[in-house]
Design a protein around this nucleic acid. Structure first.
Lengths: 335, 335
DNA sequence: CTGTTAGCGCATTCAT
DNA sequence: ATGAATGCGCTAACAG
């Protein structure tokens, strides 16, 4: 039913090889026949079958993106960066959303067989050596975003540094009673960012000789609502914190909500700082740590395309900068 | 380099046909050989090449989703619905994000050649008859979401009804000075939802014998910031509205921001109602019109898969219900 | 039940 | 410069 390269060849009175050549802008074809063939292609509205091309080329012409909770604002922003460069390439974008460990394993496995994707971008998921081995032996280039592995190229942000900066910002304002709200220590996906940001906080505290009250460390499922509950718990303390550092903007929003519910003024009675600088952060005037999400997606594709072309196996490692964006949820403590 | 079906066949001492049969659970294989072949498949870690399968089956085994601004909260939610059912199917998900008319046209065209996708879901973009014709002649099933066409199956929400309900909610509260903030009348993509919601508003006003002040109709680029500016313009009026209906939650957020900037109390001095009920709406206690976004994605895939299997050309048309969710940004007008 | 073979639509030698 | 032939990896129809 669909028109094939043979139809074009016959109609133009040439061989399929010639048609293929004009299709691929191969210079080894006379201008005259090129014209003629092009006309026929146009007239027959012929489009080469991507699938046949792929089989013949032994390439899938598509790159896969493996994301956890691709509905989260930060992930969406990364995806947008990825899509923006893929759109201008010859590749198709295949999205795999994972929300359970089993789904993750399935995705890790299925992408590791040849002929599925020409390259893979993994966001925030830490692959095991075993997974990395499978990709390697299948010859599938992989670049990691917001996660890392010794033998894989990756784009990371300095979460420890970010946590440090956020805390330092608070300290310089005069806070010493600083609390932290983050993800559980052990998540199903072994996320590291919340942990690292907390680590950065601890270092900053230590560098400034501020003792950390263990009660000030609260963690729970990622999300606004859990964070709201944790904030209440913090505010219920005999000696409540004067500032709260949330491991993500989403969680910071929960803190804001809790403060509002108790009639606690932000930033006068309580300073709040988040992390990510998602779009809503600006709207809510949330002081937060900005990280280049869109850019991280962008760069990951660049790296991937590069490692697809070059067989250069240099496991590059880019660390993107972060900086705190001061808005109106942080201020000097009252007394 | 990759292990093929031939390798398996040779290793197992059978023909490729047999291997193919066990691969596809064809019953015409003795249990004994099935065992043996399976073992070899396992041992060689063989995975059939999807591309070769596709070429042979004359199916792409992938479905495309064409979305505008897939970073918008409402779109993300739809995508999530789509992905959730695709993940459990044999199909791959290819995402095409369009942010310019030319990119849209390119996508419309490229998906309309056979062998690109087995089916297509188009979100919020209104295809021209010409496009529809191309898909039809290429034999590509298409289902529309949040947009429609006489000859295509589509999932829509009752935007007019939603606009009507939102307005009625305001009217019942006692408002008569009701303004509207929406997208431009003519957008690059000819979006209809904002228009329809406004239409619903007009009908409600008319049914309640309330005259509409033309000055109360403001439209501008979609987004929080433009909406904020429009809200200020509204509030600058000699006879400012006591309630504002925004065509989307994002725009309602802009209105909230403007009110805050002027120290206008919401809902006491100004009622605000949005549309969509995105996640942030709940956080901000925004009264809004809820529409089943996730569900719309879900259903669209169901319809698509169905119209891929059945050659049943019944252009189904599902209209999903909407309802206003009353939270804390609407109240009786002051006087 | 199972092996063999002919496509699927295109890219690519290899001759010419 | 161009046509013919071969292969990409798999499915399905056809023999046996």
């Amino acid at each position: 039913m669909p028109v094939t390269i043979y139809d074009v060849a016959k109609e133009a009175g040439v061989g399929v090889g010639t048609v293929s050549r004009v299709l691929n802008n191969n210079p080894r074809v006379s201008n005259e026949t090129r014209q003629r063939v092009s006309q026929v292609i146009e007239r027959l509205n012929f489009h080469p079958s991507p699938i046949a091309q792929r089989l013949s080329l032994r390439k899938t012409l598509s790159i896969g993106v493996l994301a956890v909770y691709f509905t989260r604002p930060s992930v969406v922003e990364r995806l947008r960066g990825i899509e923006s460069v893929i759109a201008d390439s010859e590749y198709d974008l295949m999205v795999y959303n994972v929300e359970t460990p089993s789904r993750r394993d399935e995705c890790f496995r299925s992408t590791a067989s040849a002929n599925r994707v020409d390259g893979l971008i993994v966001i925030s998921l830490a692959p095991a050596d075993e997974d990395v081995g499978r990709w390697a032996s299948a010859g599938v280039p992989v670049v990691l975003v917001d996660t890392s592995h010794p033998t894989l190229p990756c784009i990371i942000v300095d979460d420890i540094g970010g946590g440090y900066s956020a805390t330092e910002h608070l300290i310089k304002l005069g806070h010493t009673n600083i609390a932290f709200i983050g993800d559980p220590i052990h998540t199903a996906f072994n996320f590291h960012s919340s942990r690292d940001r907390f680590e950065g906080m601890c270092r900053a505290l230590k560098d400034h000789n501020i003792a950390f009250n263990p009660e000030y460390h609260q963690s729970g499922e990622h999300g606004r609502e859990p964070a709201r509950l944790l904030a209440h718990r913090l505010l219920d303390l005999d000696d409540p914190p004067t500032a709260i550092f949330a491991a993500s903007d989403t969680q910071a929003f929960g803190v804001l909500q809790a403060a509002k519910e108790r009639g606690i003024q932000v930033p006068d009675e309580l300073s709040v700082i988040g992390y990510d600088d998602v779009e809503m952060a600006e709207f809510l005037n949330l002081t937060t740590v900005h990280q280049p999400l869109f850019d991280s997606g962008l760069r990951s594709v660049d790296m991937l395309l590069q490692s697809i072309d070059n067989t250069d196996p240099s496991p590059a490692r880019q660390q993107l900068p972060v900086h705190v964006v001061e808005r109106s949820t942080t201020a000097r403590p009252l007394n």
